[in-house]
Lab assay of single mutants.
Amino acid sequence: MTYKLILNGKTLKGETTTEAVDAATAEKVFKQYANDNGSDGEWTYDDATKTFTVTE
């Protein structure tokens, strides 16, 4: 399945997607991506749209 990440950071904004077997796997990928790019904030997940959002 395709999962989407929306970044609403102070310095990093945008979207990216990943293919993953489940939401937990996608979350690990996205959290590593956000960490690698210095983005940290409040995470939410919408199962209906398969979208993670991180807001700083």
Rank of each mutant, 00 (worst) to 15 (best):
L5I: 03
G38F: 15
K50M: 08
G9K: 06
Y45V: 01
A48L: 12
F30E: 01
E15R: 05
Y3F: 12
N8A: 09
A48D: 10
A24T: 08
A34H: 03
L7D: 02
L5K: 00
D36R: 08
G41F: 11
N37R: 14
Y45L: 01
T44G: 05
Q32W: 05
T25Q: 13
K50L: 10
D22E: 04
T18L: 12
T51V: 05
A20P: 02
I6G: 01
T53E: 05
T17Q: 09
W43Q: 00
K13F: 11
N37I: 14
G9T: 15
K50E: 02
K31A: 05
A24P: 08
G41S: 05
N8L: 13
K31D: 01
D22Y: 02
K31G: 02
K4P: 02
V29S: 05
A23W: 13
K31N: 04
Q32M: 08
E27Q: 10
K13Q: 11
I6H: 05
Y3V: 02
I6D: 03
Y33F: 11
D22V: 02
V54N: 01
E42Q: 10
E15G: 08
K13P: 05
L12G: 12
K4Y: 14
Y3I: 02
E56M: 10
Y45K: 00
F52D: 00
N8F: 11
E56N: 08
D22C: 04
T2H: 07
T53G: 01
K4R: 12
T17L: 07
N35Q: 15
N35K: 15
T44I: 08
T44C: 10
D46T: 03
F52L: 01
A23R: 12
A34R: 03
D22F: 02
T51W: 01
E15K: 06
D47Q: 09
M1N: 14
V29M: 08
F52R: 00
G14K: 14
K13S: 10
G14F: 15
T53C: 06
K31M: 08
W43I: 04
E19W: 15
A20D: 02
K31F: 05
T49F: 04
A34E: 02
G14Q: 13
E56G: 07
T17C: 10
D22M: 02
N35M: 15
A20Y: 02
V29T: 08
T51C: 04
K13L: 09
V54K: 02
E27L: 15
T53K: 04
E27H: 10
V54R: 03
D47T: 07
T16K: 09
N8I: 15
G9D: 05
T44D: 08
N8G: 05
A48W: 06
D40P: 07
N37Y: 13
T11S: 11
N8T: 10
K50A: 05
T49P: 00
V29G: 03
F30A: 00
T49H: 06
I6P: 01
E42S: 10
N8M: 14
I6Y: 06
A23M: 11
T2Q: 09
L12H: 13
Q32H: 06
T18F: 12
E27N: 04
M1K: 12
T2D: 04
E15I: 10
I6W: 03
A34D: 01
D46R: 02
K31L: 06
G38Q: 07
L7V: 07
D46N: 08
M1P: 08
A26L: 01
G38S: 06
L5P: 03
A34Y: 09
D46H: 05
K10W: 10
T53M: 09
K28F: 09
Y33I: 07
A34C: 14
D40M: 12
N35A: 15
E42A: 10
E19P: 04
T18W: 07
T2M: 11
A20T: 04
G9Q: 05
K13A: 08
T2R: 06
M1A: 13
E15F: 14
W43Y: 01
L5M: 04
Y45W: 03
Q32T: 07
F30N: 00
A24R: 07
E42M: 10
Y3L: 02
L12E: 08
Y33D: 01
T17I: 08
T17H: 10
V29A: 08
L5T: 01
K31H: 07
Y3Q: 02
Y33T: 03
T17A: 06
L5Y: 02
T2P: 05
T18P: 00
E56A: 10
A48E: 12
E56P: 10
V21C: 12
E27R: 07
E42D: 12
V29H: 11
I6A: 03
T17D: 04
S39M: 15
T11L: 12
T51L: 03
F30V: 00
T17P: 01
Y33V: 05
E27V: 05
G41P: 02
I6N: 03
E19N: 13
T51Y: 01
K13W: 12
F52W: 06
T53S: 05
K28Y: 08
Y45F: 05
D46W: 03
D46E: 06
A20K: 02
G38P: 03
K10Y: 09
N35D: 11
T55D: 06
L7Q: 03
N37L: 15
L12M: 13
E56T: 09
G38K: 07
Y45Q: 00
T55G: 05
D46L: 03
Y33H: 04
D22T: 04
E19Q: 13
V54S: 02
V21M: 13
T55Y: 09
T18K: 03
Y33M: 05
E42T: 12
G14A: 14
K50H: 11
A23E: 06
T11N: 13
A48S: 11
A26S: 01
D22R: 01
G38C: 10
A48N: 11
L5C: 08
T44M: 07
W43P: 00
A23G: 04
K4F: 12
W43R: 00
I6Q: 04
A26M: 01
D47E: 14
N35L: 15
A24D: 09
G9Y: 10
T16D: 02
D46K: 02
K50I: 02
D22N: 09
